[in-house]
Nucleic acid binder design. Structure first.
Lengths: 240, 240
DNA sequence: ATTAAAAACTGATAAATATCATATTTTGTA
DNA sequence: TACAAAATATGATATTTATCAGTTTTTAAT
């Protein structure tokens, strides 16, 4: 079962205006006065791989700003399988959808590695949204972008086969997570998690990865994956 | 190829505050003064089945408010097939995503039947967004809702098989479009369109509809569909 | 009312994918 | 370091779904 992230300590309550990731999300549009208020009211959490930041059905008391690390957003299907709907990394906000629409969380957010996350109370966010139209515009734009990506995802799921989706995902993983100094994709995903993202059986994912390796498009080292022939992978995403 | 809706006539330039659908979308939160401005600047279009309101890649000069009728939102996949991402009906807005994020349209909107559509210029909408925080909140909430539905759709596409998705879609069609006086679902969709919505081959859709009929869950009369056993269909969506 | 085009339908077959069973490897931790 | 648990891997088989080819029915335009 889930391990919940419980350690709410303020030991790292860095001022937001000194935070490196500030520029990366909607918070970049707030004034220094507003920033001070956020700094005062936020708390910082340290979270380990596999821990849940919040889960589907829970009611959120604020939004989370990711200082570093990566996580997955999942949805539980009626068959009990978890669908990974999206990946999120350093600099992004989570929970703003629930806070804005004043509803329960519809996704579960789970850390894929150690991460530091700042919790900003609901009131703080709603007040910013109401009084700072740059901020509300930013939040709205970010939802609009998410919606657009989700629509693309629907089309991919519906129109592409598993092989095409896997190729697509590998390129996507490298693009958003980058590579380590040996050239491997910088994210720690199990085969099952990859399967849950592309919507297939774990065995199919494993088999296709082996095929991609055999055909020379990727290198596998344990669970680490290196892309060797991105041009070919790009072609594979469109089925040739 | 597409037939574009070109007839921009003002013959039906009804005042927005008298419009029946006003209560149904984000515009319900605007003042009567603001409403007057919208009335003055909007134009009304009459559109026939199959005509395109706007298409993927085009840059929008405003948003469209659906006075009546139904339409489909589609996305062109690289394989040339069209994916229906969503259905929209009377009372809803389209194009606000593009206008808010100041980007090109990422979807094509096509009428499924005769419809009247009001066009509201971009400036009008952006001004409302900037100055009326109730309106911006409504727009944002509606994007948040769309996003949530899109995520559910991703999970359904990924986790459910074609039979389950078809059962789900039939129930969904009846729910959002209602039924006529003989009990048939009130929307005119070809088998191909249904297939494009659930992400399968047209033949598979036809075959499964025949099976559902043979098994007594639905009635078919031409392209019209009546749901006979909704409890069973509900069970089918979860695979039993 | 006639007729051409589009849509719906059906069957046969191929291809893709899931499932089950089991072996091997890796990982985390005592 | 050892060992149990988890993850990865592979083969055999069943199931689902797509594709192709053709027929019938419906629709819309003249």
């Amino acid at each position: 079962m889930y391990k919940f992230a419980g350690k709410k300590n303020n030991y790292m309550n860095i001022q937001c205006d000194k935070c490196v990731i500030r520029e990366l999300n909607s918070l970049h549009s707030i004034s220094s006065e507003e920033m001070n208020s956020v700094t005062k009211n936020k708390t910082t959490l340290h979270i380990k791989r596999g821990e849940v930041i919040f889960s589907e059905g829970s009611s959120l008391k604020g939004v989370y700003c990711l200082r570093n690390g990566k996580c997955k957003l999942t949805k539980l299907a009626p068959n009990g399988k978890e669908q990974i709907v999206r990946f999120i990394k350093k600099g992004e906000l989570v929970g703003h959808r629930s806070v804005i629409s004043n509803s329960v969380a519809h996704l579960t957010v789970t850390a894929l590695e150690e991460m530091d996350v700042c919790f900003i109370p609901k009131l703080e966010i709603l007040e910013l949204f109401r009084t700072n139209s740059d901020f509300s515009m930013e939040i709205t734009k970010s939802l609009a972008e998410d919606l657009d990506e989700a629509n693309t995802s629907i089309a991919n799921m519906a129109q592409k086969n598993v092989r095409e989706r896997l190729a697509e995902s590998l390129l996507f993983f490298e693009k958003i997570f980058g590579i380590d100094n040996e050239g491997f994709i910088s994210v720690n995903l199990t085969r099952e998690e990859i399967a849950n993202a592309i919507g297939t059986a774990t065995e199919s994912t494993i088999r296709l990865l082996s095929e991609f390796k055999k055909e020379g498009y990727i290198t596998l080292a344990g669970k680490k994956i290196k892309l060797k022939d991105k041009v070919k992978l790009k072609h594979l995403t469109e089925g040739y």
